[in-house]
């Protein structure tokens, strides 16, 4: 049974189909890539999975449970965590508190504050933010804020992590670091779905890739298959080369 499954998922914004009739499934332990030109409906799909939006029609199942219509906090407690395309850290709270919030309210049964604190420290170490743990999150660099978002999501102890363009706006060194971090997260047994425009990263990291265009799924397959798909090259890579 796939960990996440979407059936004919559809969402309209004022008559325009942002996501239309998309079927998808993500297997346990996979790294699943979501690509497509700007406005293809990738983030909308993330918002549908994490219940910011509810679909007009179609169902989304997580671990076999229909989660359509659930509230975001509940989805999170079931084991789906996410980051945001435009970073949404808690700017006036120290980094450590940003993260410990996740361990307090995430999937794990009620933790003592010492356990929560240990978990938060461990995750800060894991993403490499230990040194700045007392800095207000708003004072961090963009790269570190993105890492902090990952750390906060990780602290909820998810089974499935949605990463929304964590490499956008980073320099090549930072991208390399982020890629290495994704691999380490994956090694922990967490299933990943990532929206990413950095093609190198997508091709290297993902087991399977789904391509969205105008809200519709136009291709799905291994990175090899996607790279060779003429349809994809036409609508997606073609657009890139023109740009």
């Amino acid at each position: 049974m796939p960990i996440l499954e979407g059936m004919r998922v559809t969402k309209h914004f004022g008559g325009l189909a942002a996501v239309s009739n998309v079927d998808f499934h993500v297997e346990q332990g996979e790294v699943f890539g979501l690509i497509g030109p700007n406005g293809a409906g990738k983030t909308t799909l993330f918002n549908l999975i994490s219940a910011v939006l509810s679909p007009k029609s179609g169902t989304i199942k997580f671990k076999g449970v229909d989660i359509t219509g659930f509230k975001p906090y509940k989805i999170c407690r079931m084991g789906v965590a996410r980051t945001f395309q435009t970073v949404k850290v808690f700017p006036n709270m120290p980094v450590f508190q940003n993260v410990i919030l996740g361990s307090y309210f995430g999937t794990l049964p009620r933790m003592s504050s010492r356990d929560a604190s240990e978990k938060a420290l461990e995750i800060l170490e894991f993403v490499g933010l230990s040194r700045v743990k007392d800095t207000p999150a708003g004072d961090l660099t963009l790269a570190n804020q993105k890492r902090l978002e990952v750390a906060r999501a990780m602290a909820t102890h998810p089974d499935l992590l949605l990463l929304d363009e964590i490499m956008a706006g980073l320099n090549p060194t930072e991208v390399a670091e982020a890629m290495e971090m994704v691999i380490r997260i994956h090694n922990r047994g967490i299933t990943l779905i990532m929206i990413e425009h950095v093609m190198k990263a997508v091709m290297r990291l993902c087991d399977r890739i789904m391509v969205l265009h105008h809200g519709q799924k136009i291709a799905e397959g291994t990175p090899r298959e996607i790279a060779d798909s003429e349809k994809v090259i036409k609508v997606y890579l073609g657009e890139k080369s023109r740009a």
């Binding site: 906090y73 965590a81 850290v89 808690f90 307090y104 999937t107």
Partner: peptide, 9 residues
């Protein structure tokens, strides 16, 4: 929004 996605009801 971020609070909700971190599990806060």
């Amino acid at each position: 929004e971020a609070a909700a996605h971190t599990g806060v009801h």
